[in-house]
């Protein structure tokens, strides 16, 4: 899949100045993400958010982590694309070195990606970082 990279996303969002445009962008990203077939919506891949479900499957290939994610809510799916841009197809070292907080701050999606929001995004970030640490060890 052709994901935009983090710099492209930061640039794109910077260009959009009202919330409608910004969220339309996130929604469109979410729709473009291939997601996972229904058969892969398994309990073992589920990362529970309070309001929507997120599934995460990872595999290692050529020292890089490949991530496959899906959500039943399209905005969460779009937000997952932001995370994928940072973490998909990267080495554990790249993942752990990436300043995710600074990235989120630059995206300026207000309170959407704060830990108190029950959309599972922080849980995904934590899980990917954990996977990266594990595969490094």
């Amino acid at each position: 899949m052709n994901l935009p990279n983090t710099d492209e996303i930061i640039d794109d969002l910077e260009f959009l100045d009202n919330w409608e445009q910004r969220y339309q962008y996130i929604i469109d990203l979410g729709k473009a993400l291939p997601g996972l077939p229904e058969s892969q919506h398994k309990e073992e891949y589920l990362v529970r958010g309070c309001q929507s479900n997120v599934w995460l499957i990872s595999e290692e290939k050529d020292d890089k982590l490949l991530l496959h994610v899906d959500s039943d809510a399209v905005i969460v799916q779009g937000l997952l694309t932001l995370v994928m841009a940072a973490y998909h197809d990267k080495t554990p070292e790249q993942i752990l070195a990436f300043d995710i907080d600074n990235y989120f701050a630059q995206l300026d999606l207000e309170n959407h990606i704060t830990p108190t929001r029950g959309n599972g995004l922080r849980a995904i970030v934590g899980k990917v970082q954990q996977l990266a640490k594990h595969s490094q060890a």
Binding site: Y23, I27, Q51, S52, A73, V74, I75, H112, N119
Partner: peptide, 10 residues
């Protein structure tokens, strides 16, 4: 075609 969470966010 819309998850309740999407409606809530918007």
């Amino acid at each position: 075609g819309a998850h309740p969470a999407d409606i809530g966010f918007l």
